[in-house]
């Protein structure tokens, strides 16, 4: 999930989640419904009218609703309000205790200290294993 989420303006949040999840593999409908509920996201709203935070939520739900092995989240909490950030932390802990390998770049310093991810902070690019000519 990129730090700066741009979506197809004419599609609704629900459509985008289904599309992206189908590209990730199987879509877990029950999980999608549960995540929509927890993130308080209206899936019938076209993404053209969504705020930055809501576009972020769409991408997050799409990432978390799929059955994936590796999650790479670039500043996933930017644009989320504090309550949603809490929800995100719960979801991400669950995902991590499931099967997903996780790479997260937290947007703020306090998030880095407050939430105890395993693993060492790395300089930009140092943890990258592919691509990256820039």
């Amino acid at each position: 999930m990129p730090g700066d989420v741009n979506l197809w303006p004419k599609l609704t949040g629900g459509e985008v989640i289904d599309l992206l999840a189908s590209l990730h593999g199987r879509l877990d409908r029950a999980r999608k419904a549960e995540l929509l509920e927890r993130f308080d996201l209206d899936p019938t709203k076209r993404t053209r009218t969504c705020s930055k935070g809501n576009r972020h939520k769409v991408a997050l739900v799409a990432a978390l609703a799929g059955d994936v092995e590796l999650l790479v989240l670039d500043e996933p909490t930017s644009g989320l309000d504090p309550l949603m950030e809490l929800t995100f932390q719960q979801c991400i802990t669950e995902a991590a205790s499931g099967i997903a390998n996780l790479v997260v770049t937290p947007p703020t310093l306090e998030e880095l200290f407050v939430h105890h991810y395993d693993g060492a902070p790395a300089r930009a690019g140092a943890a990258s294993t592919s691509g990256g000519a820039r």
């Binding site: 092995e69 997260v104 770049t105 693993g119 060492a120």
Partner: peptide, 28 residues
């Protein structure tokens, strides 16, 4: 930018063997 990683043992999901440069074309 700071990166934190959390790695676990690979889950029960084997890497898809038929993955190519054209995977997903039909859906797109």
């Amino acid at each position: 930018m700071t990166t934190l990683t959390r790695s676990r043992e690979s889950g029960p999901h084997a890497a898809p063997s038929s993955s190519t440069a054209l995977t997903g074309t039909r859906r797109l």
